[in-house]
Design a protein around this nucleic acid. Structure first.
Lengths: 216, 216
DNA sequence: TGTACATCAGTGAACGCGCGTTCACTGATGTAC
DNA sequence: TGTACATCAGTGAACGCGCGTTCACTGATGTAC
């Protein structure tokens, strides 16, 4: 192994390998728009990426392993997003609408990524399901942490913050799915419903501590 | 065609055909515990059902068609459930816990059915996705109708009732998935979180009409 | 009731096809001196 | 800088296998008279 390339990452050989790897990931993502990972063939992917089937093994041990890499690439890039939504000024009404709009824009810019996650979240490939679950758990924790930093979260237990964080995350996933299922023409209608759902949830959170018997 | 068998349904020939058809559906459901429909083979199903591959075509035109039949059988049998939950006495706290317990029990009694629905809701087979979406829409409408019949729903628009109905249905599906992902040992923890989510949503609904600016 | 004919669920052989994986290889890139 | 050797991403042939679908068939069940 080169003692410099690992740092530079732009050596002719190494960067070419990364390019091919990315071509495999991109080709797979494209094919996954219309099928699920468990029916995606290794030869199908290499054909779309423009390399021979055997070269696949230089990059991934199997198609499921490629799937896991795809999950990390897809969801890993979204981790900054939550801060961007929850931070900043504006009352909660405005922020809810901004959240929905942010999801809508991301879904329309990268439909294949969201389709993939929605499809494989409960799909037939175990390691991929687990990778998605792990990432979504991270998102829920990030939301919970952001909520904890807000005013109005004083009396909340950590468990309940995580419950609410998970609720928001699940609804982002549902909203993304709904947008994809409906198509761009129905964006406004779907976003409207999604916004109302979020508003109802936020309203529930606002009154959460009113309840006397919420423990146990 | 016999002019009586259609009514009796227990003619030797006809009932045998139904038995084989059910054997195919059962075999498929069993196999779908560990894979998704798009990777399920016709030969695989007939092997598990104990018939030859060619006989499959006497019952279904394709594996996706079998999948659609499976959706209808699985979700069709649950349509009474909603009335059973929402009707009856008891305050809302009790009813929420009863809802979660009902889901938990059904999931543990028929795990394969719920696994199948969760997996194929966003899966790779179009007709099956559409069949599931149609059934879930029906459920949402049933819940909305049940909510409309309750006290406290006077000021609610039809759109908002449907929004809330969909929210409940989506959370039932999420809860079922969470139970399946976690395994029976964690039932209590998952049910507790699911119950709290439902409680928060119900709380939001309770205060929905307090909001002055909820229209548009 | 008995007989002759029709129906049709399930059989078994056969087909062409694309799959995942192996193997020895090629030749450009990288390293040592 | 120049040369000899090492590395290794990608090649191409080959394999055995299970797949979906076709076809002509069998024989039990059902119908007509």
């Amino acid at each position: 192994m080169s003692h410099t390339a690992g740092i530079r990452g732009n050596g002719t050989r190494e960067s070419q390998k990364l390019k091919t790897r990315q071509a495999l990931l991109d080709a797979a993502l494209g094919l996954l728009a219309e099928q699920s990972l468990s029916s995606l063939g290794l030869r199908e992917v290499t054909r779309a990426a423009g390399i021979t089937p055997t070269a696949f093994y230089r990059h991934f041990g199997s198609v499921p392993a490629l799937g896991v890499a795809l999950v990390e690439q897809t969801l890993g890039s979204l981790h900054g997003m939550i801060g961007a939504v929850l931070a900043g000024t504006g009352d909660s009404e405005v922020r809810l609408d901004r959240s929905v709009e942010l999801i809508r824009r991301h879904v329309r810019e990268q439909p294949a990524h969201f389709r993939f996650i929605a499809r494989e979240q409960h799909g037939g490939v175990g390691p991929v399901r687990e990778a998605i679950a792990a990432q979504l758990r991270l998102f829920a924790e990030e939301v919970a942490a952001a909520l904890a930093a807000e005013s109005g979260s004083e009396g909340w237990s950590e468990e309940d913050l995580l419950m609410l964080g998970g609720l928001y995350v699940d609804h982002m996933v549902i909203t993304a799915s709904a947008l994809l299922d409906a198509g761009p023409a129905d964006d406004e209608r779907v976003a409207r419903t999604a916004g109302r759902r979020l508003r109802l949830i936020a309203l529930g959170a606002l009154h959460w501590l009113d309840e006397p018997a919420q423990g146990a």
